[in-house]
Design a protein around this nucleic acid. Structure first.
Lengths: 164, 164
DNA sequence: AACAAATACATGTATGTACATGTATTATAA
DNA sequence: TTATAATACATGTACATACATGTATTTGTT
């Protein structure tokens, strides 16, 4: 078992500190906890930056997904399948964005079951301003190199190999 | 930039499939999304197994933390600082465990502000049964080797280097 | 064409997250 | 010693998650 790990000490100490635990059954078990903790940390960093724009983490994601197709309209299910957390209740998130007048709802002409969503000018402005600030915060906070990031991507796909 | 990645194709395709997106600004940005998605996936696997025991993800974590010190009692803040998601509302989670008679509350003699929590016999039994099933499900689902897991642990610590 | 099934979304409930505030107790300071 | 601050927890609110169910519309079958 050959592990190249120049940060062994920091590794162990940091997750241990975070969850006050030293007893891990294995590196695999520890990796699970580490992924959960890191995800929580990322969301916290994100939420902190979004707060001044009156956006939550999930509301921002919906705006970002809409921007990806803009000016094309998207229906609710197309937004839902792009969400990171697959059980997100997209209609309800859209409710809140609609109240803030960042998006508009309409019934699809082609299929009246579908609700199509569009970004308003205000929605675009808020998204751009918050994205700018978020990117800056991430750049300050996450300083790993592209190669390390690529390794993470490879290893996480490997973990989800038996996704079902 | 030297990246050893034997799974490049699978990598790219899988996160793309999951969130229906191909436009990542960088490997670092993709890694962020990958961590969030993998965490969601892990929680989903966990919740599915816990369902038959009537436990949620967070309720299970509280039981597990209590077990770590058992038969010693723990106060609410000591549980809270061991939670993975640091903003968990531990008193409310304990409310639900108490209703199911898996834990008991009492006021600390030493400091009457503190509520001390103890596992009931029933709580221990449920925890052991659910842990057994959870471990089996994880063993089936997560098949990476210890060395890869160790690499993940190293890289995630590196991501959180500027934790604040 | 008429009925059954599937689809798209809205909505309801229990639980959890994130954060603010209230209350009792303990620690600190004037 | 009394007032003030800090601590520990409970509780309230808005939003999100997880899942079930309801309603309108479309599709598929006979």
């Amino acid at each position: 078992m050959e592990i190249i790990c120049t940060y062994t000490y920091i590794c162990v100490v940091k997750l241990e500190q975070a969850i006050q635990s030293t007893k891990f059954k294995s590196e695999v078990q520890k990796a699970g906890l580490n992924i959960l903790y890191t995800a929580w940390w990322l969301k916290t960093v994100m939420s902190r930056e979004l707060k001044e724009f009156g956006l939550t983490h999930e509301q921002y994601n919906v705006l970002r997904i809409l921007k990806g197709k803009h000016p094309e309209l998207m229906c609710v299910k197309d937004i839902a399948c792009r969400m990171i957390e697959k059980n997100s209740n997209v209609p309800r998130i859209i409710d809140r964005l609609e109240i803030k007048k960042l998006v508009k709802r309409a019934t699809s002409e082609a299929d009246k079951r579908e609700t199509v969503i569009s970004l308003t000018q205000s929605g675009i402005a808020v998204l751009e301003a918050s994205t700018k600030q978020l990117d800056a915060a991430y750049a300050d906070t996450i300083t790993i190199c592209e190669a390390d990031a690529a390794s993470i991507n490879e290893l996480l796909e490997k973990i989800r190999e038996n996704e079902n």
